[in-house]
Each structure stands twice: as C-alpha cells, then as structure tokens.
C-alpha cells in the first residue's frame, strides 16, 4: 500500500496504518481521506496537496 507525505513538514500518511486518532482507521486508502483534511502535524497543507512518498 502507498504512503503520502505532507510537502510542508514531512508527516507521512501510510495507508497500512491509517491515522486512527484522526478518524482514518488502518487500511483507509488515501483517496478516501477528505481532500480538505489538514496535515495533523503542521496544518499548513491539506490532503489534496500531499505527495506520494
């Protein structure tokens, strides 16, 4: 499964692990994450800005 990184701070969304604290359980494909969901670490960039890592 794929990984996507915040271009601002380097936070990585890993589809295998998801981000359960944010409400994305393990295995949630990145395409199902809300495009307006901001990076949980920096809040500077949103899902639609993330780049494949």
């Amino acid at each position: 499964m794929a990984r996507f990184a915040c271009p601002s701070c380097g936070y990585v969304y890993d589809e295998d692990r998801g981000d359960p604290r944010e409400g994305w359980p393990a295995g949630t494909p990145f395409s199902e994450v809300d495009p307006d969901w901001p990076c949980p670490d920096c809040g500077v960039r949103e899902q639609q800005d993330f780049e494949p890592a």
């Binding site: 601002s8 701070c9 670490d41 920096c42 809040g43 500077v44």
Partner: peptide, 10 residues
C-alpha cells in the same frame, strides 16, 4: 518571527 512560524509550525 511569525512568518517563519506559519511556514514551519512544527
């Protein structure tokens, strides 16, 4: 140094 803080909040 607030501009840098908003560019790099962490």
């Amino acid at each position: 140094r607030h501009s840098d803080h908003h560019a790099n909040p962490t």
